[in-house]
Simulated scan of single mutants.
Amino acid sequence: MSEGWDREAFRAAYVADGGTPASARSYVSYLNRAERVLEGLPEGGGSGLIDRAERLPVHVWGGERERRDSLAALRCFVRLAGGVAATPPAVIREDRDDRLMQLLRDAQRIGAEYYRLTGKPLGVTGEIAEYEAARALGLTLCVARTPGHDAIDPANGDAVQIKGRAVARDDRYRGMCPAILCDADVQVVVLVLLDRTTLTAIEVWRTDIAAVRRRIAGLASARRRAEGVLAITQFTSIATRVVPPVPSSSPVP
């Protein structure tokens, strides 16, 4: 099977398809895991290979997350195995990013209107948080199902995990952050606090993954340690508020 698994061709095709070099590296590592798991299966390619892989039990992958990300890499490999797209990569990325931002602006508007009509969230908080973080910090959003991270900081190549929470503007620090993937290959974690009535960013906080890991390791709750869950105030205590910027003389909550 391994004779057909050309990593460099896959990496080039993935980047040409609009992915980033960092996420391509992550996908190659999960592709390696998929190959090891599938070594004992009969030869075959395309959707047949994916179908057989999907039927394998979770334990052979080493866990649900490993199974999910390995299958995502495998599907991407099969889809791109035919070669690099004819359209220049820069054009693909530019068109994709423009369209993505427009869709997220539309989702933000629709989500806010839905909340005004029903008093309930529409379920697009994570996507809107990614949009607001990318817009505020100049990040490049990754393609869907990129293992472990949501964006790349083009200034330094850091992989960024983005978390979002819709909150009341006058009580924004109440509640919990979404679960953080502490074992992901990322350098930065960003938390976006959205106004639940408008889905616009109230604040954006940024910290490094090492600080998050230390804070989670010190939690008293074994369940929250395992799930990677921090209270909003716990996250802000180890992070820097980047939107709006904190004046040098002002204390941070």
Rank of each mutant, 00 (worst) to 15 (best):
M1T: 10
E3M: 15
D6L: 14
E8D: 15
A12W: 12
A13G: 05
Y14I: 08
A16P: 06
G19E: 00
T20S: 14
T20K: 09
E35I: 10
G45S: 09
S47G: 13
E54D: 06
V58W: 01
V58T: 09
G63H: 05
D69C: 05
R75D: 04
G82F: 02
P88Y: 09
R93I: 13
R93V: 15
R99E: 12
R105H: 11
Q108V: 10
Q108N: 10
R109H: 12
Y115D: 02
L117G: 05
K120F: 04
G123E: 01
G123P: 01
A129H: 02
A129W: 02
E132G: 07
R135D: 12
L137W: 05
G138I: 11
G138Y: 13
G138V: 11
L141S: 08
V143E: 12
A144R: 13
T146N: 09
D153W: 08
G164K: 01
A166N: 00
R172D: 05
R172Q: 11
R174E: 11
M176R: 07
M176W: 12
C177Q: 03
L181P: 01
C182L: 14
A184G: 01
V186I: 14
V189H: 00
V190E: 04
L191I: 08
R196K: 14
V204N: 01
T207M: 04
D208N: 12
D208C: 09
A211S: 14
R214Y: 11
R214H: 11
R214T: 11
R215C: 09
L219N: 00
L219M: 07
E227V: 03
L230S: 06
A231C: 04
T233A: 13
T236I: 14
S237V: 00
P244T: 07
P245W: 08
P245N: 11
P245G: 11
P245V: 09
V246F: 02
S249I: 12
P251C: 06
P253W: 09
P253G: 04
